[in-house]
Simulated scan of single mutants.
Amino acid sequence: MRWSWRLGEVAGIAVYVHVTFLVLVGWVAVSHWLPERSIAAALAGSGFILALFGCVVLHEFGHALTAKRYGIRTRDITLLPIGGVARLERMPDVPIQELWVALAGPAVNVVIAGLLFVWLALTSGLEPLSQLGVATGPFVQRLMVVNLFLVGFNLIPAFPMDGGRMLRAFLAMRMEYTRATQVAAGLGQGIAVLFGFIGLFTNPFLLFIALFVWIGAGQEASMAQMKSALGGIPVGRAMLTDFRTLSARDSLARAVELILAGSQQDFPVVEDDRVEGVLMRSDLLAALASRGQVVPVAEVMRRNFYLVDSSDMLETAFARLQACDCHTLPVMHDGRLVGLVTMENLGEFISIQTAIKAKVA
């Protein structure tokens, strides 16, 4: 994700923090400093936010490590002001596995809250809940309460929260996966409408949550429908066959010429009939801004890239496009480059097939 800085790596999973998260920490520090003009208050406020997001990171690792048990890799975890995002390569295909992956995150928060409760009970540190506030009350007890809040919030049966995925997993045990997704997404959007209505009269923050849930539910339903529509169709039926390639010795100026002359954005780099790399439009623009047009393609192209075979199913190509930080996959057949497949290409293919089926019906 752009505007993110790498904090480190745990269990082979990179952890990033987005710049907007640092803005949140700064805002909290200033808001705590202003009432008393106290540096100690500012440090206490920002420290609580950092501790809270430490719990969020552990929540995301709950998802990631459970997914790893089922052979699903997590690309990275990114901290945002709205929480953490663990980017799994894919969700499990088996409903019970998706259920466990979704449940693992809230379960981590339950364990954290339980450990904090035991500590407070042993140290006689429990205070009445009426004395707790967003910025007031014992640090550890506030952290315990917030973890319980995270559990409740994430169990709301609406995408993109964990509860929505758990609901979809339960439904998928009894009905077709795409239909289960549509039902869960519909319920989620109904909850979004309810949140929005309540937010109009109470807390404006609920309006933000309502929009977040509405968009997340719609995206999940669209993705499931696209995945279902692509099942059983070979890549060779939908790939782009009219495309251009580059040589590793070409300059970036040549890539600029090809982009301006057509609609292709990314270019396979071919040497002796072998695909040696892929020049992505985003990498090209970054190199043009910093180094100019005379740089050889070999210095900018990506050497680690995904491929698909023309006999692979479109569902496989779709999954790889989701998993990789790319927009184009080279398509091979008998070791030769025969086409390209993009997310836009898949969308157009589905639209055309839907139109044809509608005419036949």
Rank of each mutant, 00 (worst) to 15 (best):
M280C: 06
V278S: 02
N304H: 13
A224H: 03
G190E: 01
Q189A: 03
F212A: 04
D266L: 05
A253Y: 14
G164W: 03
A104K: 05
S263G: 13
V235R: 01
F205G: 01
Y306N: 11
L207M: 14
R244H: 15
L167P: 00
L65G: 07
P234K: 04
E220D: 06
G188S: 08
N304I: 12
S251N: 06
Q353M: 11
S351P: 00
R2T: 10
I350N: 07
G62S: 09
G216W: 02
L167Y: 01
L80P: 00
Q293H: 12
Y16V: 07
A361Q: 11
P95W: 03
S263L: 11
L126M: 15
S290L: 14
L206A: 00
A238H: 02
W3K: 15
V28M: 13
P106I: 03
R281P: 04
L346A: 01
H63Y: 08
D312H: 14
G277M: 05
Q131N: 14
G54V: 13
L132D: 01
A44N: 10
A41V: 10
L230D: 02
R87L: 05
E127M: 14
V140H: 01
A286V: 08
F212H: 02
S130M: 09
A224K: 04
V108C: 10
V25F: 09
L150S: 05
S290R: 15
L211I: 11
M161I: 05
S311Q: 10
K227S: 13
L284I: 08
F305L: 09
V57M: 09
F149V: 15
L7I: 07
E89N: 08
A14R: 11
V270T: 06
P157I: 10
S31E: 10
A113S: 08
E89T: 07
G216T: 06
I77Y: 00
G199V: 03
I198H: 03
L115F: 09
F201T: 10
L240F: 07
I215N: 05
G199W: 01
A86D: 00
T181Y: 05
I82V: 15
I356G: 07
P330F: 06
A44L: 12
R320D: 04
W214S: 01
G199R: 01
M239A: 04
P160C: 14
V360A: 09
V308Q: 02
S31L: 10
M1D: 11
W5N: 12
E348S: 13
R320Q: 13
P128F: 13
G125Y: 05
L99N: 00
V297W: 00
H327Y: 08
S46L: 04
S130D: 11
A41M: 15
P160F: 14
F267G: 04
W214N: 00
L346W: 00
V275L: 06
G47W: 04
K68W: 07
A317D: 05
G186I: 11
Q293R: 15
R303C: 04
L240K: 12
P95K: 02
S124P: 08
L206I: 00
R320Y: 11
I191N: 04
S310L: 03
L230F: 03
H327L: 10
H18R: 07
P128W: 12
R6I: 03
G335Q: 06
P160G: 12
R142H: 05
Q97P: 05
G277Y: 04
E348K: 14
G216S: 10
R37Y: 09
A221K: 04
Q264H: 09
G339D: 01
R142I: 05
P35M: 03
R90Q: 12
